[in-house]
Nucleic acid binder design. Structure first.
Length: 192
DNA sequence: GAAAAGGAAATTG
DNA sequence: CAATTTCCTTTTC
């Protein structure tokens, strides 16, 4: 029994936008979302930098455009908005987020799968080598680590630490190194 | 020189 | 308490 619609992982309660799809947000809804995100992740005050923008316009903005309006945390806001987008290249059929795991911090393996799901946005950072076998390659380790740090609110995240977390999955049987070990290439033990 | 591999301790929800 | 995060040493690309 939650708020009625699925929310991104790691999201707790407070003043949430009225609809789950940011494309439906009015300029007022956008402001609400910004205030809420500011609070959740202790971001510096955004002020009116995103005034008068509809959700549709917001969704059309690139990370660069976000940073133009907010040099300090535009990248963080942009990454968080992407969590709310359900559409995109091949959005998650909102069954992914059930109330049972709502509020729990997202797992690294889930995050990686999210990025892999949106090749249009993240294909330059991480991509499938063999989707059927669950083999993927991290093309830009620094960028993936940066996005992971944003998601977990860990500004000091880097690939050294992210990769250590991936290695913790070895004994758990979640991710492994492919048969022919290659740098920056990993494999999900249970694809699909 | 960056990446892989783990041990160990600290942190966080 | 589990899942990282942080830090670090050694080895392999």
């Amino acid at each position: 029994m939650s708020t009625g619609y699925p929310r991104p992982y790691g999201v707790t309660l407070l003043s949430l936008p009225p609809t789950p799809d940011p494309a439906d947000w009015s300029p007022g809804n956008v402001q609400k979302w910004i205030l809420w995100t500011e609070h959740q992740y202790r971001l510096p005050q955004l002020g009116k930098s995103f005034q008068e923008l509809s959700g549709k316009e917001l969704c059309a903005m690139s990370e660069e455009q976000f940073c133009q309006r907010s040099p300090v945390c535009g990248d963080v806001l942009h990454a968080h908005l992407d969590i709310w987008k359900s559409g995109g290249d091949s959005g998650w059929a909102d069954s992914e987020v059930d109330s049972s795991c709502a509020g729990q911090p997202i797992h690294l393996w889930q995050f990686l799968k999210e990025l892999l799901l949106k090749p249009h946005n993240y294909g330059r950072f991480i991509r499938w080598l063999n989707k059927e076998k669950g083999i993927f390659k991290i093309e830009d380790s620094a960028q993936v680590a940066r996005l992971w740090g944003i998601r977990k609110n860990r500004p000091a995240m880097n690939y050294d630490k992210l990769s250590r977390s991936i290695r913790q999955y070895y004994k758990k049987g979640i991710i492994r190194k492919p048969d022919i070990s290659q740098r920056l290439v990993y494999q999900f033990v249970h694809p699909l």
